Computed example of a mutant assay.
Amino acid sequence: MRGAAVAAVLVGALALTACSSDGGSDDDASATPSTTAASGVASTGSATGGTSSASAAASPELEGSWLATADGKAVALIVTGTQAALFVTGGTVCSGTAGEEAGMQMIHLTCTSGSKDRTTGMVGSVDAKSLEVTWSGTVGKETYTKAEGGQLPSGLPTAGLSQ
Rank of each mutant, 00 (worst) to 15 (best):
V75R: 04
E63L: 08
K116I: 11
T138A: 11
M1W: 13
T36R: 10
T36N: 11
G24T: 14
V139T: 05
S34I: 12
D71S: 15
T51P: 07
I78W: 01
T69F: 00
G103K: 11
G140Q: 14
D127C: 06
T36A: 13
D22W: 10
P33R: 07
A4N: 06
G3V: 08
K116L: 10
E132P: 09
G103P: 08
G90H: 03
L14G: 10
G137L: 07
S55T: 13
A98I: 11
P60G: 09
G81T: 01
S30I: 07
G3Q: 14
G149Q: 10
V41A: 09
L16H: 05
S136I: 01
V9D: 13
T80N: 13
A7K: 01
T112P: 04
V139P: 04
S25V: 06
A38D: 14
S46N: 05
A15I: 08
M122D: 03
T35E: 05
S25W: 13
E148R: 15
A13Y: 00
T35S: 11
A84W: 08
A70V: 04
G96P: 06
L156F: 05
L152V: 02
L10S: 00
V9N: 14
V133C: 06
S25L: 09
Q105Y: 08
P60S: 13
V41P: 09
S25M: 12
D28Q: 12
S95W: 09
G121M: 12
T120R: 04
D117E: 15
V88F: 05
T97M: 02
A76H: 03
G149D: 15
V93T: 11
A29L: 13
P153E: 01
G91D: 13
A18P: 07
V6H: 00
G64N: 07
A76Q: 03
S113V: 04
G23V: 08
